[in-house]
Structures are given as structure tokens and as C-alpha cells.
Write a protein that binds this DNA or RNA. Structure first.
Length: 747
RNA sequence: GGGCGGCUAGCUCAGUCAGGUUAGAGCGUCACAUUGACAUUGUGAAGGUCACAGGUUCAAUUCCUGUGUCGCCCACCA
């Protein structure tokens, strides 16, 4: 430092630390440690220390548990900022405030990540290691990610109660998962069924409908007949599946084909004998293609549904590896794409192909592995969303105890009756639409990392026994189901599994239902809907009163951040360069509920300047008020009174905005007020009064400055916790922490 | 195919889901000033037919209808 000491020093009364420009990196870690050690993140300690009354209203929220697949991105940072603002606000308002952290094992995402690494580094797959050894690897990876994530959450300043931290795959959550599964099984809401499911040949597991991503591809659609004498031509994009056809469906009113309905034909299709029945089904669109559909019950969900309606046979011709599984040597063992070519050339040879056209079609791929979904018939576990059962709870408006309901009905009801409010409102429509089109949820996965299905099988002479329970029953040879549960099954329990359920705990009684769920709109189906499903059924109550959906953080041009575009921004870098406070502010300003956030570095830099402004203004006020005597009588001028009135107005507005989740507005107003009213005008005007004014005038000016500073620091604290806490600690007479100061009230 | 959202200053967005004087902010740009809280500064300026077209109204960026455009979600017309 090259500070020369020759100048008269107006700064002699301020603490050393305030002299240099604000340096977030030097401050933040120590401040976070102070908070953590104070215990104020934990509501029990707040009550113990008199910060919150024992009977104060509660504010509770779970942290959407980040996946233990790596590090946090800007979207997480935005989420943490919003949630921490709400938490700090309510804590300062004296509520019993709980923000409960944790992480998600993210079954398939984590496993496939570890598998990829294993393949890349050691050229091994999970079977080379075996279940136990492989799981050890996954656990080590998950632990590592977890530690990183915890560190990042702290760096953002999140005031989560670490003493209650949970993990979706820990022992306590395992109990909740088993309890939920067993109850649902006993009520007939979970069943095992042989159905066509979404099979991911790459990940070698089933996945749910929601884990499918549609991708547009060019494809050929072929119009042909099974044989020369077959009366009806059909069209398909997947000729290779046609060796599994057992019917041709036409519309009941289609005059062209009505004469054939009910007839049966035997043909040999590319060497494979087929027995085809002509059926009439209203699901067939007579306008499309030839108006006739080849029905392949084993390899198409719609066709499977037709099979159920018309009692057709089902022949599986493709196996789990996406290879043909039929006797004909031309096809057997071939990949589906190769088999397709074989069949097309066979059709040409036989002169059966009538037309070939190019179309764009949507192809189903697996979200995590990118594998192309192969619909296959498999014996799997499902949650039945349409099954009727008597409602066991008491806390859902409009539904009486014992009333016959379905899971769909419960999910609809709590949003419709206003018990749970989805924000922004438009997403309630999306939510309802999703429920209306919801099919049974396939919850079993053929992967190793996750909650093992609590079901036991035993082979017997006349088939087998099944037992649903946490432990194997008495007797020999019981084998647990090798499959694990969809990761969202355990996250669906998150609002209450984290509070000790199924035990009757104080935490559960006090903090459930939670006040608000803040999460990204991209997981409204995966998670929000599943939580509502699980909670309404298992608890007979809502999981949360409000759902605050935030958008996606994009780059400054509105593009999605992605590694391939090279426009990603690591929150850790942003924090290092500009500080956590600036990073938080940049993610809040301009981010209305449900809107995507365009974030450029400029925006963060601007907020760092703001932090510096706060720092310097505070330093100035402290200097000027060093000789302020609070015991002296204050005579305010008219403009002083107006300034205080304006401050009161600000307090009221900020309070109102946060209460209504308009954080972006509150942040902008604070920014504007502090900089352009307080610093630019009020402080400027005070300068002359303090240097040249009468003692009374000087005193009044000092009173105004310190009052405004004190109040604005409180208002700013939820948004910029580190710098405000730091300044607070440097102000004379402050021995307590700003984090638990009382939120200001307008007069 | 169904549904949803955006379109306001060069860029990113506000405009508080109850229409009304010169439509706001940040960043950027330009000019000037200042080293006595802060050059991470101050003052000032330029810059907008509020996508377009109809309609309702005394009055529309704001309400209604339609069009265009960009984007998103859902959906196995084989």
C-alpha cells in the first residue's frame, strides 16, 4: 500500500478494515463462518436465543436437492439467491424459519456419469466390476460431488440449516421410501405389470415417459403389402418391427376396408410366418397413409393398447440390446437398423414396396444416455394414477375423509382449490394439462444406484411367491428384486422425508406443509407434480403452499448455456471475480417469477460497483457520524422529515414486494434508492451541513445519515448478506449480527 | 398436431394482470467535471411510430381480435 499520511485524515475514526476498497474475497468466508457458528441458520437456536418466539409463525422451505453429479451451475446460483432472500427476510421478521438443505443421488444420472468415466478411463463396464464394487465407485463419486456442492452453497451465502442436511439415498430417506412403497402397494396403487415400456438399450433400463426427449429426424416411410395376396397395403417407418405384427387395424367407418374386418391371413413375411387379423379400431386415422395400420403389440405403446382391446397375440421380435430376435437367419441377431435395410430390400425383391417417402419424424430418446428408445414388453413396477381408493387424510379442501379419489384427482384438487398456488399462474395450466394426459408411472429401473425395491421373490414348484416389505420374510431362498426405484420416487417425498417422516417428529408437526417450494419450471412434472402426488396420498395434505418457479439462466444473448457453445459461466468464477453479493444481485434483478434470466458479465460487474458504492457510502457515513451523540435532542428540518418519510415508504414497498415474491423489483428499488437518492442526493446535501452547519443542523444531518444507513443495510441484507453484515460489524455499538436484526417497519 | 410465452432506447430488461400529464432503469455511447466516501465517481446529453393491423374508449404500450416473428413445453399419424 502506498498511502501517504500527509493529508489531513478524515478517516481517523473508522476501522482499519474500512479503509481499502471493498474486497469480497477477503470478507465472505469469514462472515459465513461467523453465521454458521452463531447457529442462527437453525430455528431451534433462534428460539433459544430469543430471536424468534416459540409460538411465532413458521416459514419453511426445502432446498431442491442438487444432483450429486458434479458442480453447481448458474441456475443453482439463481435458485440459492432467491431462496436465501426469502429465508433471511422471514428470519429477520421473527418467524421460525427453516431452510432445509440436502442433495439428490439422481440415480440414473449419477450412475451413467460414473459408467462413462469407468469406460473412458479403465475401459470397463459396470458388470466387469460387479454390483458391490461398482456401487462403491458411485458412492465415492457422489461423496466428492456432495462436498463440492456443499462448499458452493456456502459460498453463495445460503443460510441453510446444515444440522438438518439430508440426502435422498441416506438411511432415513430409505425408511421413508420403503414406507411409501409398501403403503402404496397395500392400497393397490403400486402394481407389477407386464406391459410395453420405454426401454433404453444404451442405459439398459426402463425409463418413465417424462424421461423421454423427442428429437426430430429424417426418416423414410414405406408403403407395402405383407404379401402379394394380402388385400391391404400399410405404411411404416419401421419395417423391421413388422415381423412382430399380429393384426392390421382400420377405422370402423372406412368403407374401403370394411369387407375385410374380422378376416385372418397367413403370410410369410421376409421368411417369418405371420398370422394377421384385420380389426376395426377408432384410433386409426383413415386419412393418414393408406388408412390401415400394421399392429405390432410388442413394440409400440399404441399397438399394445389395441392388443388389449382386441385380445391380440403379442410377439416380441426385438431384444433388450436393440437386436432382432426372430428365427429367420436374414434377420436374427441383427441391429434394428440393419434389419430394416434387409426387409426393405426383401420388399423390393418381392415387388411388394409400393411407395417410399421422406418425412421428418420425432424420435424418442433417453434423456440421460441419449439412447433411442425401444418400446418393449417387460414386467415392471408401476404407480397407478387412475386407481380409485378412499382418501385417508383430512387436510384437503373439498375432499372428505374416506371419499373415493384417484391420485390424479388429488393432484388436480389441491391446485384448483387454491391450497397450493403455482407462480406464475400460467404454469398451473401446464400442470393440469400434464395430469390429464398422465399414464401410469413406471418406477422400476434396471440400474444399481438407487433405492432397492422392497420386494422379495421366491421360486416355488407352482410358480413363485412374492413378499413386499423391508426385510426378507422367514424361510429360505428369498431374493430381493434386483431393480431400483426411479430417483423421483424418493425426491417426491422430500418435503416430509427430510422432516423425519414416517416417524412422528416435532419437525414434521411444526414445519409441514412447507411454506414455499422454489424451483425451476423445467422440473414441474418430474418433481413438483410428483411431490404433490406423494404428499396428498401419504400425508393427506399439501407439500407446500406456494410454488415459485424460476427460469433458466441464459447467456447475455439469451442462449442456453452449454459446454458446446462455450458460453457457460461457473458461479465460483463469478464469486471470485465479483463477490457473492454481486453475483446474487445480478441473478435477481430482471428476473421476474417464471422468466428466464439473461446474464452477462457486465451485469455482475455493475453489481460489484454497487457493492463498492455501499461500502464507500457507509465509510463516509461512519466518518461523518463518528462524533454523533445519540443522547442529544434532534431537531429535524422539513426536508429531513421528508427524507425519513421517503425511507418509510421504501421500507413498506420493499416489504410488500418481497411478501409478493417480486424480488426483482425490490432489488432494483434498493439499488436505485441507495445509489441515486441516498448517496447522490442525501449524502451530498449533508456534507455542507456537517462541515459548516450549526451544531443542531449537523446533529440532524448525522441523525438522518445514520438512520438511513442502518435501515437500508437491513433492507439490503437478504439480497447482499455478506457486505451488509461486514459493514454492520464495523459500525460502532453493534455487537449483534445483522442476520438476526429485526426487519424495519415503516412508521 | 395441441398449448404457452416474448416482441418497449445499440444491448438486457422494468412498466406492480384496475388504460390518463414529457414511457423508465442498468449496461453501452458522447460531452463536461472532479483526485476531500467512492475514477468501481459526478453532472448532463443523444437514443424509443412501446412488432404490425383492426376494434372497444373521450383516451391504449397497457383491454379485445387477428397477423407476423422468435422461443419454449406437450404429443409414438403408423
Amino acid at each position: 500500500m502506498s498511502t501517504d499520511n500527509t493529508k489531513p485524515s478524515p478517516t481517523r475514526n473508522i476501522p482499519e478494515e474500512l479503509l481499502s476498497p471493498y474486497d469480497p474475497t477477503a470478507t465472505e468466508e469469514a462472515i459465513y463462518t461467523t453465521w454458521k457458528e452463531s447457529g442462527f441458520f437453525n430455528p431451534d437456536i433462534c428460539i433459544e436465543k430469543g430471536i424468534a418466539e416459540p409460538d411465532a409463525p413458521t416459514f419453511s422451505m426445502v432446498l431442491p436437492p442438487p444432483n450429486v453429479t458434479g458442480v453447481l451451475h448458474m441456475g443453482h446460483a439463481a435458485m440459492l439467491a432467491v431462496e436465501d432472500i426469502l429465508t433471511r427476510f422471514e428470519r429477520m421478521r421473527g418467524k421460525r424459519t427453516l431452510w432445509l438443505p440436502g442433495s439428490d443421488h439422481a440415480a440414473i444420472a449419477t450412475q451413467s456419469k460414473v459408467e462413462k468415466e469407468l469406460q473412458k478411463k479403465e475401459k470397463k463396464n459396470r458388470h466387469d466390476l460387479g454390483r458391490e464394487a461398482f456401487l462403491e465407485r458411485v458412492h465415492a463419486f457422489a461423496q466428492d460431488s456432495h462436498d463440492n456442492i456443499v462448499d458452493q452453497i456456502a459460498k453463495m451465502g445460503a443460510s441453510v440449516d446444515w444440522s438438518r442436511e439430508a440426502f435422498t439415498l441416506d438411511e432415513a430417506r430409505g425408511k421413508a421410501v420403503n414406507e411409501a412403497f409398501i403403503r402404496m402397494y397395500n392400497d393397490g396403487l403400486i402394481y407389477r405389470g407386464y406391459r410395453v415400456v420405454n426401454w433404453d438399450p444404451k442405459g439398459q433400463t426402463t425409463i418413465s415417459d417424462d424421461e423421454i426427449v423427442h428429437e426430430e429426424r429424417q426418416a423414410s416411410v414405406y408403403t407395402f403389402r405383407y404379401g402379394k395376396d394380402f388385400p391391404i397395403p400399410i405404411a411404416t417407418t419401421r419395417p423391421e418391427t413388422k415381423v412382430g405384427d399380429t393384426a392390421v387395424a382400420v377405422h370402423p367407418d372406412d368403407a374401403r376396408y370394411s369387407a375385410f374386418v374380422g378376416k385372418e391371413y397367413d403370410v410369410t413375411f421376409c421368411g417369418v410366418p405371420l398370422h394377421i387379423r384385420i380389426i376395426a379400431d377408432k384410433d386409426v386415422d383413415p386419412e393418414y397413409g393408406t388408412g390401415a395400420v400394421g399392429v405390432t403389440p410388442a413394440h409400440s405403446m399404441v399397438d399394445f393398447a389395441m392388443k388389449e382391446r382386441h385380445d391380440l397375440p403379442m410377439i416380441q421380435v426385438i431384444n433388450e440390446y436393440g437386436k432382432m430376435d426372430v428365427g429367420e437367419p436374414r434377420l436374427k441377431g441383427k441391429k434394428t437398423t440393419d434389419a430394416r435395410e434387409e426387409i426393405v430390400s426383401w420388399l423390393k425383391e418381392e415387388n411388394l414396396l409400393e411407395k417410399e417417402e421422406e418425412i421428418t419424424q420425432n424420435i424418442s430418446t433417453a434423456e440421460r444416455t441419449g439412447g433411442i428408445i425401444e418400446p418393449l414388453p417387460k414386467l415392471q413396477w408401476f404407480v397407478n394414477v387412475n386407481k380409485e381408493f378412499p382418501f385417508q387424510g383430512h387436510n384437503i379442501k373439498g375432499i372428505a375423509h374416506g371419499e373415493i379419489v384417484t391420485l390424479k384427482k388429488l393432484m388436480h384438487e389441491v391446485v384448483e382449490n387454491g391450497q397450493t398456488t403455482i407462480m406464475p399462474e400460467r404454469f398451473a395450466k401446464t400442470y393440469n394439462h400434464w395430469i390429464d394426459n398422465l399414464n401410469d408411472w413406471c418406477i422400476s429401473r434396471q440400474i444399481w444406484y438407487g433405492h432397492r425395491i422392497p420386494v422379495w421373490y421366491k421360486k416355488t414348484e407352482d410358480g413363485g411367491d412374492i413378499h413386499v416389505g423391508t426385510e426378507a420374510p422367514e424361510g429360505e431362498n428369498w431374493q430381493q428384486d434386483p431393480d431400483t426405484l426411479d430417483t423421483w420416487f424418493s425426491s417426491g417425498l422430500w418435503t416430509f422425508s427430510t422432516l423425519g417422516w414416517p416417524e412422528e417428529t416435532d419437525d414434521f408437526n411444526i414445519y409441514h406443509p412447507t411454506t414455499i417450494l422454489e424451483t425451476g419450471y423445467d422440473i414441474i412434472f418430474f418433481w413438483v407434480a410428483r411431490m404433490i402426488l406423494m404428499t396428498t396420498y401419504l400425508i393427506g395434505d399439501i407439500p407446500f403452499k406456494y410454488v415459485y418457479l424460476h427460469g433458466i439462466v441464459r447467456d447475455s444473448q439469451g442462449r442456453k448455456m452449454s459446454k458446446s457453445l462455450g458460453n457457460t459461466m461457473d458461479p465460483r468464477d463469478a464469486i471470485t471475480l465479483y463477490g457473492a453479493d454481486a453475483t446474487r444481485m445480478s441473478l435477481i434483478i430482471g428476473a421476474a417469477v417464471g422468466n428466464d434470466i439473461n446474464l452477462g458479465e457486465d451485469k455482475i460487474r455493475a453489481q460489484k460497483k454497487f457493492a463498492n458504492k455501499i461500502w464507500n457510502a457507509s465509510r463516509f457515513v461512519m466518518t461523518q457520524c463518528a462524533d454523533f451523540d445519540a443522547s442529544q435532542e434532534t431537531i429535524l428540518t422539513k426536508s429531513d422529515t421528508e427524507n425519513l418519510k421517503e425511507l418509510d415508504g421504501l421500507v413498506a414497498e420493499i416489504t410488500n414486494d418481497i411478501e409478493h415474491f417480486r424480488l426483482y423489483l425490490a432489488a432494483e428499488k434498493l439499488y436505485h434508492y441507495f445509489w441515486h437518492r441516498f448517496a447522490d442526493v442525501i449524502i451530498e446535501e449533508s456534507k455542507a451541513r456537517i462541515t459548516d452547519g450549526t451544531p443542531e443542523d449537523k446533529h440532524a444531518a448525522q441523525y438522518i445519515l445514520s438512520t438511513i444507513l442502518t435501515t437500508t443495510l437491513k433492507l439490503l441484507h437478504p439480497f447482499m448478506p455478506f457486505i451488509t453484515e461486514k459493514i454492520w460489524s464495523l459500525m460502532p455499538g453493534h455487537t449483534t449480527l445483522l442476520i438476526v436484526e429485526k426487519w424495519p417497519k415503516g412508521t
